[in-house]
Structure formats: C-alpha cells, structure tokens
Design a protein around this nucleic acid. Structure first.
Length: 281
DNA sequence: CTAGGATCCTGTCAGC
DNA sequence: TGCTGACAGGATCCTA
C-alpha cells in the first residue's frame, strides 16, 4: 500500500476536506470491503482523523469510528468542489467514479469519498471509538522509527537474528510504517544488503538504518506521498512521484546514484527487492 | 517462540 | 491475437 507517508498524506488531505462534515450515506458495493453496521456512523459529524501506522481512523462525534486500511491497492478519492486523491496511484485518481474498483461510497454534505481497491485486501471497519486501539493489529504495532531509540531497534534485530533484515523491517511489530518501497530505499541509504541476517548488523549499522528509515519517510511525507497532484503533471501527462523519489525501487538495470553500480532486482522475504550489489554490503 | 511460504483478489504485462 | 505465468506500495495464517 500505500505505506506510512501515503497514509499520512491522506490523513492531512482528508482532514482539510471532510472535517466537521456530516456523513449522509454509506453505500457498500463490495461486502468484503466493509465490516460492521454502517448505520452507526450515518448522520454523524467527522470529529478527527487519526493514523496508526498505515491505518487511518475517521472519528465521528457520536463516538463511533471508521478504521480504514488500504493494504496493497486501496485509494481514497474525495470528489467535492475539487478532487483530492491519494493512496495507491492509478488512473482512478482522475477517473469517473464510482467505477468497477469502487468498493464503498461515503456521501458527505459537500462531497463524496470513494474507497477504491482493486485487489480487495483493504477494508473499512466500524468500531466504537474507544475500541480502535484495542484492535489486535493496532495494539501490536511497533513505534514509528522517529520515536524509537537505537537501543530498542538493535534489541529487536537480535530477537529476529536469523531472518533477513528486509523481512524484519517490513514487520510492523518490529518497526512501523515501512513497506516494500521505503524498506528498499532505507536499506540503500544505509548501504546494507537486504539479505543480511538481522543479527549480523552492528550497532552502528542498525543506527544508520533507523536513521535512513526516518529520513526516507519524512522526506516523502514532506513531498506529499502519492497524490493526484504529483500523479497528474502540470502538462496534463501522468507520472508517479516515486519515479523521481526512488533511488532503487523499480530502477533495476539503472546506475546506482551513489557508486554507479548496476541496480539489481532479487526476491527477499517473498517480495521484489531492489538494491545495489556494489555498495550495499 | 521464530522463519518462510501460501494465501486473500484483480489486473497487467512479458513471453510464447 | 490469445493464452500463460509471474508479479504487484500488505498482512495473516499455516507449517516446520
């Protein structure tokens, strides 16, 4: 998905558009994508929008909340006076909606929020606001990298010493926010080979990786993740901001920006993994 | 407990 | 053109 920076971008954007608006109607087009009783939030006002790792929470003033996880291909597209779209970048950002990938439609006073999700791994769930933090995956979520000490991170690596470092930093119970792209980017920045066993990293390498995870995600949040704005370029053509942001992701065959080596693509932890075999040790 | 693979689902793309 | 398998910005479940 949509990794942490994208979800944070959605949160900030949505807050601007739907805060204080009343939800008028919920249409569930795909049962799998919506859990719970939708009537509980109808006619309630949006009080706040929070984020837990890669999960988004819309709190309503009647103490019910919508927990949203975009997983791999989820997107939230708000269509009001103007359109705001973020999440997994695709033509849906600019398409006529609803379409075949629209799973849930939330109608507000001044606009409509579409939850699109090609692969249906994502979901929206109605919860009592006080129960959000009791959801199992949220309860188990590790700290975000900028809130984690080097010592804590290093200790966690020892607990998973025999797993590849890439698999470990993708584990949201170890450190939260990184997904397949930012994991590759952080490992490149820290000059660490993705297949290294987590236990083989020195304390210094662990610190450097933690710093890289912070740097990569903070910079992406600053640039606004994947949104309609950086999907549709000024001249009207389409582009993905990752094409300019990423140093290794989807750059196999290209020259490494640091050492000129050739970026390779391999499989680690069951995921496509991009790295420079020359400078990542 | 950990590590790794299969699995959920739809769509696209490379290669025959 | 039409088919096939591989793969995809995530996380859980199952097995060893």
């Amino acid at each position: 998905m949509p990794e942490l920076p994208e979800v944070e971008t959605v949160r900030r954007g949505l807050k601007k558009f739907i805060l204080k608006q009343k939800l008028q109607k919920v249409e569930v087009l795909c049962e799998k994508s919506f859990v719970g009783e939708s009537d509980l939030v109808v006619r309630a006002k949006v009080q706040d929008i929070r984020r837990f790792g890669k999960a988004l929470v819309i709190d309503f003033d009647n103490l019910y909340s919508l927990l949203i996880h975009l997983r791999m291909t989820g997107q939230l597209i708000y269509d009001g006076k103007e359109r705001y779209a973020a999440g997994h970048p695709s033509e849906n950002f600019v398409a006529e909606l609803p379409n075949g990938q629209t799973r849930v439609v939330l109608t507000f006073d001044k606009g409509t929020l579409y939850f699109n999700d090609q692969r249906k791994f994502g979901f929206i769930k109605v919860l009592d606001t006080f129960d959000v933090e009791k959801e199992e995956f949220i309860e188990k979520l590790a700290r975000e990298p900028w809130k984690m000490s080097g010592d804590e991170f290093f200790e966690k690596l020892q607990r998973h010493k025999d797993a590849s470092i890439k698999a470990v930093i993708l584990d949201q119970k170890v450190i939260c926010g990184l997904g397949n792209i930012y994991a590759d980017e952080a490992l490149w920045m820290a000059e660490i080979h993705p297949k290294r066993k987590a236990g083989s990293l020195s304390r210094g390498e662990a610190m450097s990786l933690l710093g890289a995870a912070c740097a990569v995600m903070e910079k992406s949040i600053e640039l606004g993740g994947s949104t309609i704005r950086n999907y549709v370029k000024a001249d009207g053509t389409r582009g993905n901001y990752l094409d300019s942001f990423a140093r290794v992701y989807h750059r196999d065959g290209e020259a490494c920006a640091r050492c000129g080596g050739t970026i390779e693509k391999i499989k680690v932890a069951g995921r496509g993994t991009h790295y420079c075999p020359v400078c990542q040790k």
